[in-house]
């Protein structure tokens, strides 16, 4: 709508509300960064006040403790994102373009899986991954995240592929193109932008996940960065600056994605929640 109709006092009022809201959203983030930049002495003497002598020593400490897990998360999130995106594209394509008996029910059963509380499958999951010999491996985590990504990637690609006209498919079929040919020649090239949206959606979700990382790993070999950050909280000496620095490092990739690809992030969130 148009703000010119609003009188100046009203506009000022709106800005005050906007700034108050921003304070609510930003204060914790400011607090996080502020604490992470403090030296141990400054943390003890003035825990909350704005940092006077910023130092990156806490970052150095934290990075030394979580760098391995950071790499684990990177491999895990990239791999599971790639796998679940390509599989989701395949199934979204079929559900959109080839109706068969029961396809609606099957589609429904698959996307409902997105909303299942992970606690309800936790115990069998641990046993299953263990029985495959994948406990405490990145493979186990990749498999798990790929599996739980399937419902949403299927839905997102379905929503993405559905607007592609059926007539295109029909013409190709008349030319004798197979399901596979149509996928590689028509669907995949047309849904490449969709990969960016789905990829970002999946990457941010998987990167931030904690419970599977907690239950499927038992050491630095495969533990993701969320678990490593939670472990930075020691029992006795609360080294909050290091804890905060680690926390900030751990969300840096997602934060950057939000700042630089906000449009794609928003698209993914909306595609995942409502029909376009």
């Amino acid at each position: 709508m148009n703000y010119k109709q609003l009188s100046v006092p009203v506009q000022i009022g709106i800005y005050i509300v906007l700034l108050a809201l921003s304070l609510f959203y930003l204060l914790p983030i400011y607090s996080l960064i502020n604490t992470s930049l403090k030296s141990e002495q400054e943390l003890v003497s003035a825990p909350v006040s704005p940092v006077k002598n910023p130092t990156f020593s806490a970052y150095k400490d934290a990075f030394g403790k979580i760098n391995k897990s950071f790499l684990n998360s990177l491999i895990m999130a990239l791999s599971a994102t790639a796998l679940s995106s390509i599989f989701g594209c395949m199934s979204g394509y079929i559900f959109s373009k080839y109706k068969f008996r029961g396809s609606n029910v099957l589609f429904f059963l698959i996307i409902v899986g997105f909303y299942i509380a992970p606690q309800s499958i936790l115990i069998p999951l641990v046993r299953f991954i263990g029985s495959l010999g994948l406990y405490n491996t990145l493979f186990g985590l990749i498999l798990t995240h790929t599996a739980y990504g399937m419902p949403i990637t299927t839905l997102l690609f379905y929503n993405y592929i559905d607007p592609i006209p059926h007539s295109l498919i029909e013409i190709a079929q008349i030319d004798g193109a197979s399901v596979f040919n149509i996928f590689t020649r028509i669907i995949l090239p047309l849904s490449l932008p969709g990969f960016a949206v789905v990829g970002i959606f999946q990457f941010t979700n998987i990167w931030n996940e904690f419970l599977f990382g907690l239950t499927l790993t038992s050491g630095v070999a495969s533990q993701p960065v969320t678990v490593a950050v939670a472990n930075l909280k020691g029992t006795t000496v609360a080294a909050w600056n290091v804890h905060m620095a680690g926390a900030f490092i751990s969300i840096a990739p997602v934060l950057l994605i939000y700042i630089f690809f906000l449009r794609l992030v928003i698209k993914g969130l909306l595609l995942g929640s409502i029909k376009e």
């Binding site: 491999i75 990239l78 791999s79 790639a82 990145l138 493979f139 090239p189």
Partner: peptide
Amino acid sequence: KSKNLLLLLVFTLSIAILVPSAVVSAA
């Protein structure tokens, strides 16, 4: 262009599958 992107995708996928197995297998 789309072929390149497809190649990239295949490449990412193979990394996805190869890297973890290399990381995991330690004596």
